[in-house]
Protein backbone atom coordinates (compact mmCIF):
# COMPACT_ATOMS: atom_id res chain seq x y z
CA UNK A 1 0.00 0.00 0.00
CA UNK A 2 1.20 3.50 -0.85
CA UNK A 3 0.66 6.18 1.77
CA UNK A 4 0.18 9.92 1.59
CA UNK A 5 0.14 11.98 4.79
CA UNK A 6 -1.45 15.41 4.52
CA UNK A 7 -1.21 18.15 7.12
CA UNK A 8 -3.75 20.93 7.35
CA UNK A 9 -4.84 23.28 10.14
CA UNK A 10 -2.83 21.37 12.75
CA UNK A 11 -4.16 17.93 11.79
CA UNK A 12 -2.40 15.08 10.02
CA UNK A 13 -4.41 12.63 7.95
CA UNK A 14 -3.03 9.58 6.15
CA UNK A 15 -4.56 8.15 3.00
CA UNK A 16 -3.44 4.68 1.92
CA UNK A 17 -4.14 3.09 -1.41
CA UNK A 18 -2.86 0.33 -3.68
CA UNK A 19 -3.19 2.83 -6.53
CA UNK A 20 -0.33 5.32 -6.57
CA UNK A 21 -2.19 7.36 -9.16
CA UNK A 22 -5.19 7.87 -6.91
CA UNK A 23 -2.91 9.26 -4.22
CA UNK A 24 -1.26 11.54 -6.77
CA UNK A 25 -4.66 12.85 -7.82
CA UNK A 26 -5.60 13.34 -4.19
CA UNK A 27 -2.39 15.30 -3.60
CA UNK A 28 -3.18 17.52 -6.59
CA UNK A 29 -6.75 18.12 -5.50
CA UNK A 30 -5.66 19.13 -1.98
CA UNK A 31 -2.55 21.13 -2.94
CA UNK A 32 -4.19 24.47 -2.14
CA UNK A 33 -5.39 23.53 1.35
CA UNK A 34 -3.00 20.87 2.69
CA UNK A 35 0.73 20.16 2.68
CA UNK A 36 2.42 16.80 2.43
CA UNK A 37 3.82 15.68 5.78
CA UNK A 38 5.90 12.87 7.24
CA UNK A 39 4.58 13.01 10.81
CA UNK A 40 2.35 10.49 12.59
CA UNK A 41 -1.23 10.81 11.37
CA UNK A 42 -4.20 11.18 13.74
CA UNK A 43 -6.63 9.61 11.27
CA UNK A 44 -6.29 7.34 8.26
CA UNK A 45 -8.35 6.45 5.23
CA UNK A 46 -7.82 3.52 2.88
CA UNK A 47 -8.91 3.40 -0.75
CA UNK A 48 -8.56 -0.09 -2.15
CA UNK A 49 -8.77 -0.51 -5.89
CA UNK A 50 -10.30 -3.88 -6.83
CA UNK A 51 -10.50 -5.44 -10.25
CA UNK A 52 -13.60 -7.59 -10.63
CA UNK A 53 -15.59 -9.08 -13.48
CA UNK A 54 -17.60 -5.91 -13.88
CA UNK A 55 -14.51 -3.70 -13.97
CA UNK A 56 -12.81 -1.61 -11.32
CA UNK A 57 -14.34 -0.74 -7.98
CA UNK A 58 -13.08 1.15 -4.96
CA UNK A 59 -13.60 0.24 -1.31
CA UNK A 60 -13.10 3.13 1.08
CA UNK A 61 -12.43 2.70 4.76
CA UNK A 62 -11.96 5.18 7.55
CA UNK A 63 -9.59 3.67 10.14
CA UNK A 64 -10.64 0.04 10.40
CA UNK A 65 -14.36 0.53 9.75
CA UNK A 66 -15.90 0.15 6.30
CA UNK A 67 -17.26 3.31 4.81
CA UNK A 68 -18.48 2.99 1.26
CA UNK A 69 -17.91 1.60 -2.20
CA UNK A 70 -17.43 3.54 -5.42
CA UNK A 71 -17.31 2.49 -9.02
CA UNK A 72 -15.13 5.31 -10.33
CA UNK A 73 -11.85 6.74 -9.00
CA UNK A 74 -13.28 10.27 -8.99
CA UNK A 75 -16.26 9.19 -6.91
CA UNK A 76 -13.87 7.53 -4.45
CA UNK A 77 -11.68 10.63 -4.27
CA UNK A 78 -14.69 12.90 -3.78
CA UNK A 79 -15.96 10.70 -0.95
CA UNK A 80 -12.62 10.70 0.86
CA UNK A 81 -12.14 14.44 0.36
CA UNK A 82 -15.62 15.19 1.71
CA UNK A 83 -14.94 13.15 4.85
CA UNK A 84 -11.50 14.67 5.29
CA UNK A 85 -12.80 18.22 4.99
CA UNK A 86 -15.54 17.60 7.50
CA UNK A 87 -13.10 15.99 9.92
CA UNK A 88 -10.72 18.95 9.66
CA UNK A 89 -13.62 21.40 10.04
CA UNK A 90 -14.68 19.67 13.25
CA UNK A 91 -11.32 19.02 14.82
CA UNK A 92 -8.94 21.80 13.73
CA UNK A 93 -7.53 22.96 17.08
CA UNK A 94 -6.91 26.66 16.42
CA UNK A 95 -9.61 27.48 13.91
CA UNK A 96 -13.38 27.65 13.72
CA UNK A 97 -14.92 26.50 10.44
CA UNK A 98 -18.19 28.16 9.45
CA UNK A 99 -20.19 26.96 6.42
CA UNK A 100 -19.76 30.07 4.27
CA UNK A 101 -18.48 31.37 0.99
CA UNK A 102 -15.76 33.99 1.44
CA UNK A 103 -14.32 36.55 -0.96
CA UNK A 104 -12.27 39.66 -0.44
CA UNK A 105 -13.06 42.97 -2.09
CA UNK A 106 -10.42 45.69 -1.89
CA UNK A 107 -8.82 43.97 1.09
CA UNK A 108 -12.09 43.49 2.99
CA UNK A 109 -13.60 40.07 3.57
CA UNK A 110 -17.24 39.31 2.77
CA UNK A 111 -18.75 36.28 4.50
CA UNK A 112 -21.70 34.54 2.86
CA UNK A 113 -22.82 31.89 5.35
CA UNK A 114 -25.25 29.20 4.30
CA UNK A 115 -25.83 25.47 4.35
CA UNK A 116 -25.09 23.11 1.48
CA UNK A 117 -27.26 23.84 -1.60
CA UNK A 118 -28.00 27.38 -0.37
CA UNK A 119 -26.20 28.92 -3.36
CA UNK A 120 -22.90 29.95 -1.70
CA UNK A 121 -20.75 28.86 -4.60
CA UNK A 122 -22.82 30.58 -7.29
CA UNK A 123 -22.67 33.83 -5.33
CA UNK A 124 -18.92 33.45 -4.85
CA UNK A 125 -18.51 32.77 -8.60
CA UNK A 126 -20.53 35.90 -9.44
CA UNK A 127 -18.36 38.01 -7.12
CA UNK A 128 -15.14 36.53 -8.53
CA UNK A 129 -16.30 37.45 -12.03
CA UNK A 130 -16.59 41.05 -10.87
CA UNK A 131 -12.99 41.05 -9.60
CA UNK A 132 -13.17 39.78 -6.02
CA UNK A 133 -10.36 37.57 -4.68
CA UNK A 134 -11.20 34.01 -3.74
CA UNK A 135 -11.03 32.76 -0.16
CA UNK A 136 -13.44 29.83 -0.01
CA UNK A 137 -16.70 28.48 -1.39
CA UNK A 138 -17.41 26.13 1.51
CA UNK A 139 -15.79 27.10 4.81
CA UNK A 140 -14.86 30.42 6.38
CA UNK A 141 -11.81 29.52 8.44
CA UNK A 142 -11.71 31.90 11.43
CA UNK A 143 -8.84 32.19 13.89
CA UNK A 144 -9.09 33.18 17.56
CA UNK A 145 -8.87 36.88 16.63
CA UNK A 146 -11.90 36.58 14.33
CA UNK A 147 -9.83 36.95 11.15
CA UNK A 148 -10.74 34.86 8.14
CA UNK A 149 -8.06 32.73 6.42
CA UNK A 150 -8.06 31.43 2.82
CA UNK A 151 -9.39 27.93 2.26
CA UNK A 152 -9.02 27.99 -1.48
CA UNK A 153 -10.09 24.52 -2.52
CA UNK A 154 -11.34 24.31 -6.14
CA UNK A 155 -14.87 25.69 -6.42
CA UNK A 156 -17.46 22.94 -6.64
CA UNK A 157 -19.92 24.38 -9.14
CA UNK A 158 -23.21 22.52 -9.34
CA UNK A 159 -24.66 21.97 -12.78
CA UNK A 160 -27.40 19.71 -14.09
CA UNK A 161 -26.27 16.15 -13.41
CA UNK A 162 -23.58 16.75 -10.79
CA UNK A 163 -20.84 19.19 -9.91
CA UNK A 164 -17.71 20.38 -11.68
CA UNK A 165 -14.46 21.65 -10.22
CA UNK A 166 -13.26 25.09 -11.28
CA UNK A 167 -10.28 26.82 -9.74
CA UNK A 168 -10.35 30.57 -9.09
CA UNK A 169 -7.79 31.08 -11.87
CA UNK A 170 -10.12 29.41 -14.36
CA UNK A 171 -12.59 32.18 -13.51
CA UNK A 172 -9.92 34.80 -14.00
CA UNK A 173 -9.76 35.55 -10.26
CA UNK A 174 -6.89 35.73 -7.81
CA UNK A 175 -6.67 33.67 -4.63
CA UNK A 176 -6.47 35.62 -1.36
CA UNK A 177 -3.19 35.24 0.47
CA UNK A 178 -3.43 36.38 4.09
CA UNK A 179 -5.90 36.61 6.97
CA UNK A 180 -8.45 39.45 6.78
CA UNK A 181 -10.92 41.14 9.11
CA UNK A 182 -14.50 40.34 8.22
CA UNK A 183 -16.11 43.52 6.88
CA UNK A 184 -19.55 42.25 5.94
CA UNK A 185 -21.73 39.20 6.64
CA UNK A 186 -24.65 38.46 4.30
CA UNK A 187 -27.02 35.59 5.05
CA UNK A 188 -28.43 35.36 1.54
CA UNK A 189 -31.18 32.94 0.70
CA UNK A 190 -31.90 32.03 -2.91
CA UNK A 191 -35.38 31.96 -4.35
CA UNK A 192 -36.04 31.64 -8.06
CA UNK A 193 -38.55 34.50 -8.27
CA UNK A 194 -36.99 36.80 -5.67
CA UNK A 195 -35.52 40.22 -6.25
CA UNK A 196 -32.80 41.47 -3.96
CA UNK A 197 -34.17 42.42 -0.57
CA UNK A 198 -31.92 42.90 2.46
CA UNK A 199 -32.46 43.98 6.03
CA UNK A 200 -29.85 44.50 8.73
CA UNK A 201 -29.78 42.16 11.71
CA UNK A 202 -28.49 42.81 15.21
CA UNK A 203 -25.08 41.46 16.26
CA UNK A 204 -26.84 38.99 18.58
CA UNK A 205 -28.99 37.70 15.75
CA UNK A 206 -25.94 37.49 13.48
CA UNK A 207 -24.08 35.54 16.16
CA UNK A 208 -26.87 32.97 16.42
CA UNK A 209 -27.08 32.63 12.65
CA UNK A 210 -23.31 32.17 12.41
CA UNK A 211 -23.41 29.59 15.18
CA UNK A 212 -26.04 27.62 13.28
CA UNK A 213 -23.54 27.32 10.41
CA UNK A 214 -20.52 26.50 12.59
CA UNK A 215 -19.23 22.95 12.17
CA UNK A 216 -17.78 22.53 15.68
CA UNK A 217 -20.65 24.33 17.48
CA UNK A 218 -21.61 21.21 19.43
CA UNK A 219 -18.12 19.92 20.11
CA UNK A 220 -16.46 23.22 21.09
CA UNK A 221 -19.22 25.76 21.78
CA UNK A 222 -17.11 28.05 24.01
CA UNK A 223 -14.34 28.45 21.46
CA UNK A 224 -16.87 28.92 18.67
CA UNK A 225 -18.83 31.58 20.57
CA UNK A 226 -15.71 33.52 21.53
CA UNK A 227 -14.55 33.64 17.93
CA UNK A 228 -17.95 34.34 16.35
CA UNK A 229 -18.62 37.14 18.85
CA UNK A 230 -15.65 39.04 17.43
CA UNK A 231 -17.06 38.73 13.92
CA UNK A 232 -20.61 39.66 14.96
CA UNK A 233 -19.41 42.75 16.84
CA UNK A 234 -17.12 44.07 14.14
CA UNK A 235 -18.95 43.29 10.92
CA UNK A 236 -22.38 44.57 9.88
CA UNK A 237 -24.71 41.67 9.07
CA UNK A 238 -27.69 41.42 6.74
CA UNK A 239 -30.33 38.85 5.96
CA UNK A 240 -31.22 38.89 2.28
CA UNK A 241 -33.43 37.21 -0.29
CA UNK A 242 -31.89 36.96 -3.71
CA UNK A 243 -32.74 35.77 -7.18
CA UNK A 244 -30.00 35.30 -9.78
CA UNK A 245 -26.51 35.46 -8.25
CA UNK A 246 -25.34 37.99 -10.85
CA UNK A 247 -28.02 40.46 -9.72
CA UNK A 248 -26.92 40.16 -6.09
CA UNK A 249 -23.33 41.27 -6.65
CA UNK A 250 -23.89 45.01 -6.90
CA UNK A 251 -26.15 45.26 -3.83
CA UNK A 252 -23.62 43.27 -1.78
CA UNK A 253 -20.76 45.52 -2.86
CA UNK A 254 -22.93 48.57 -2.12
CA UNK A 255 -23.55 47.26 1.40
CA UNK A 256 -19.83 46.75 1.84
CA UNK A 257 -19.01 50.28 0.67
CA UNK A 258 -21.69 51.78 2.93
CA UNK A 259 -21.13 49.78 6.08
CA UNK A 260 -17.55 48.66 6.20
CA UNK A 261 -16.44 51.64 8.30
CA UNK A 262 -19.22 51.30 10.85
CA UNK A 263 -18.26 49.25 13.92
CA UNK A 264 -20.84 47.80 16.25
CA UNK A 265 -21.06 46.62 19.83
CA UNK A 266 -23.04 43.74 21.31
Amino acid sequence: MNELVLETHGLRIAVRSNSAMLLEQLRNRTASVAAQSSGTPQLSYTIEERRGESGLSYAIRCGTGRMQRSTTPREALDAVLRRMQLHVAEEAPDHIFVHAGVVSWEGKAILLPGRTFSGKTSLVVALLRQGAAYYSDEYAVLDRCGKVHPYARPLQVRVAGGSRLWTAHMLGAEVGSGPLDVALVVFAKYHLTSCWQARPVSPGNALLRLLANTVCARKRPHEALACLRLVAVEAPAYVAMRGDSGDAVKPILDLLARDSKVGRKL
Binding site: L165, T167, H169
Partner: peptide, 13 residues
Protein backbone atom coordinates in the same frame (compact mmCIF):
# COMPACT_ATOMS: atom_id res chain seq x y z
CA UNK B 1 3.00 25.12 -16.18
CA UNK B 2 1.12 27.45 -13.84
CA UNK B 3 -1.99 26.78 -15.88
CA UNK B 4 -1.27 23.05 -15.71
CA UNK B 5 -0.89 23.01 -11.91
CA UNK B 6 -4.19 24.84 -11.71
CA UNK B 7 -5.84 22.23 -13.91
CA UNK B 8 -4.43 19.40 -11.77
CA UNK B 9 -6.06 21.02 -8.74
CA UNK B 10 -9.27 21.22 -10.71
CA UNK B 11 -9.23 17.43 -11.11
CA UNK B 12 -7.97 17.13 -14.70
CA UNK B 13 -5.70 14.21 -15.60
Amino acid sequence: KKFGFDRLQGGDS
